[in-house]
């Protein structure tokens, strides 16, 4: 698997898409810093990019890579390599190079502006960690979708649907639910529902650094426990990791059952 990973990384790092992706983050982040010295403002803009664009690009890119390397995959399938290693290796290659572009693109400006040593380092680390985890989660989801759908159009359609659902619609439904049942105690539901969406989860992870003062305004016991201590941070991270593993496990399973 290491070799597959090595080669797909090698392949991807040279692809101009990765270069664009890296360049985009670099210019965007530099632009933000240049426009506004206000660190929280930069953080909020980057948060939006991380929550919307990173999942979208990871999904699209994962699909593109998977479909484009179908023949290459077949070549590998004929080699004496266990099947799941091929897909896991390719997946790690895609997720890894997306993460790398993202980390460098956003990280270099951070270092450049001396944030690594500032008091906001926790916030920026959280942003970077969320971006990386979302890259992994959504390229995993896209690999799974691609494995399950040989028809590219269907695959892309489905992936966009999943992205729309998780990035935007989910919160709409959640809000509707909350507003509709606002007479009931909802804190468990509200927190629980957020666990089922990795984008919401990453957002909460960032909020814990960015808006803790506002979050502390709610004393439901569960909220307080979740937000007030490190518990929220730990639980969010664990569930996010679970979200990374879930597509991984599904990819393995689907790859073992698929005809090529």
């Amino acid at each position: 698997m290491n070799k597959i990973l090595k080669y797909s990384l090698y392949d991807l790092v040279r692809s101009r898409w990765m270069f664009f992706y890296f360049g985009f983050f670099l210019l965007f982040t530099l632009g933000l810093f240049w426009l506004s010295p206000d660190i929280s403002k930069v953080a909020i803009s980057m948060m939006n990019i991380i929550l919307i664009l990173v999942p979208l690009i990871a999904t699209m890119f994962g699909l593109m890579y998977f479909y484009n390397s179908r023949e290459f995959t077949e070549l590998l399938l004929a080699q004496p390599i266990p099947r799941q290693h091929i897909f896991l290796g390719q997946y790690l290659g895609v997720a890894g190079s997306l993460s790398l572009s993202f980390l460098l693109g956003m990280g270099i400006p951070f270092l450049f502006y001396g944030l690594a040593t500032s008091s906001d380092v926790g916030l920026f680390l959280t942003l970077l960690v969320s971006g990386v985890l979302l890259s992994f989660i959504f390229s995993g989801i896209s690999f799974y979708i691609a494995l399950k759908n040989d028809n590219r159009i269907r695959g892309f359609g489905l992936a966009i649907l999943v992205w729309l659902l998780l990035a935007v619609a989910y919160d709409g439904f959640l809000l509707l639910g909350l507003a509709h049942f606002s007479d009931y105690p909802l804190e468990k539901y509200a927190l629980g529902a957020s666990l089922f969406n990795p984008i919401d989860l990453s957002r909460i992870l960032i909020l814990l650094k960015l808006d803790i003062a506002a979050l502390m305004g709610f004393t439901g016991a569960v909220f307080k426990k979740f937000l007030g201590s490190n518990l929220g941070m730990i639980v969010s991270l664990i569930v996010l990791l679970f979200w990374v593993l879930l597509p991984l496990w599904s990819i393995r399973r689907a790859s073992l059952r698929k005809d090529f």
């Binding site: 392949d11 390397s69 179908r70 023949e71 290459f72 077949e74 070549l75 004929a78």
Partner: peptide, 9 residues
């Protein structure tokens, strides 16, 4: 294999 296509890069 019947069809020969390889990674572009």
């Amino acid at each position: 294999p019947q069809i020969a296509r390889f990674p572009e890069n």
